[in-house]
Computed example of a mutant assay.
Amino acid sequence: MKNSRIIRQTGKRLVALTAFLLCTFIASSHINSPEENTYPTTERLFHIARSVNKNLVCYDVNLENGKLNTKTPLNVYWVNREERPGETNSLSYFQRKMAYGYKLVSEGNDSSEVTLSAYPDKKLTICKKDSKYVCLTTIENHPAILESLYVKAKSGNPLSVEYVELQGVATDTGTKVTERVKK
């Protein structure tokens, strides 16, 4: 019984990870370089980069009068880094629901817990730490501030995910941490 539950959960995770790339319309062979401009904002919590092109999906904290909007804590949008560098676009309905959106799990006084549509097993907490809003999660069994996710598509099939890599900074040591979730 326990094994079948684990298999079902793993299957759901694999389907969710695959959804990251369902919205990809242009499949190119560009690999994102961390040195390239990510057009950061003061509100940016983290972003998703993909192996299929240089464009980013950005997740900014949603503030009202300097405080977290706990009901809708994130502003999510695309940043173009190819044809029209720096241009931003909103997500389509399908992109929000299946791949790059998020679901509010709970809300506190000045914090919210969410999950990403394509990765519902990983809880993310949006809260204030040292006078700045951050996205807290667990990366490689360490409490960490999430900085980015990288989605590597399988060679020859941009809609199939080879792995997702989470990158951040461990809150207890201040060191960089990375976790790779393979399909």
Rank of each mutant, 00 (worst) to 15 (best):
A99V: 06
E36R: 15
V79K: 09
R13Q: 13
T41P: 06
V105R: 08
T42E: 14
N65T: 13
P34F: 05
T137V: 02
K152A: 01
V79E: 08
I126Q: 02
R81Q: 04
W78E: 03
G174L: 06
L21E: 15
T138K: 15
K183H: 14
N65D: 15
E147I: 03
Y100S: 07
K122T: 13
K154A: 09
K123I: 06
E113G: 02
C135W: 07
V164D: 03
E147S: 13
L146P: 01
N32V: 09
C135K: 05
I139T: 09
S148K: 01
K128T: 05
T125R: 00
R8P: 04
D172M: 09
V79N: 03
T173K: 10
Y93H: 10
E179T: 09
R50Y: 12
T38Y: 10
Q167P: 02
K123M: 08
T72A: 12
A27W: 05
A16Q: 03
S160T: 12
L136Q: 11
L45Y: 12
N53T: 00
T178Y: 00
L146C: 05
P34Y: 05
Y59R: 02
A118T: 03
E162F: 07
P85W: 02
H142D: 12
F25A: 02
G101V: 05
N69R: 14
L136T: 00
Y100A: 00
A170R: 01
L116H: 00
R81N: 04
K122N: 04
V134Y: 02
E147Q: 12
S160V: 05
W78L: 02
R96W: 10
T115Y: 01
R5D: 11
T18G: 12
V57N: 03
A99H: 04
S106M: 11
Q9Y: 08
T138W: 02
G108A: 06
L146E: 10
P73S: 01
V105Y: 09
A118P: 06
Q167G: 08
R5H: 04
L146F: 07
N3A: 15
K103S: 12
N80G: 01
N109R: 10
C58E: 00
S111P: 05
E35A: 14
T42F: 01
K67H: 13
T70Y: 13
A27Q: 08
K182T: 14
K152G: 02
Y77S: 11
A118D: 12
K54D: 02
I48Y: 02
E107P: 04
S117C: 11
I31H: 02
E43L: 14
I26N: 03
E87C: 10
K183M: 05
R180P: 01
I6Y: 09
K12C: 11
L14S: 09
T72R: 15
N75V: 12
Y102K: 09
N32Q: 03
T24Q: 15
D130P: 10
I6P: 01
T178G: 00
D110V: 10
V114R: 05
R5G: 04
V181E: 01
C127L: 15
K54C: 08
K122I: 09
V61F: 05
S155L: 15
L56W: 06
V61R: 06
S131C: 06
S160M: 13
S155D: 11
S155Q: 08
K2R: 08
L159N: 05
Y59S: 06
T178D: 03
F46H: 01
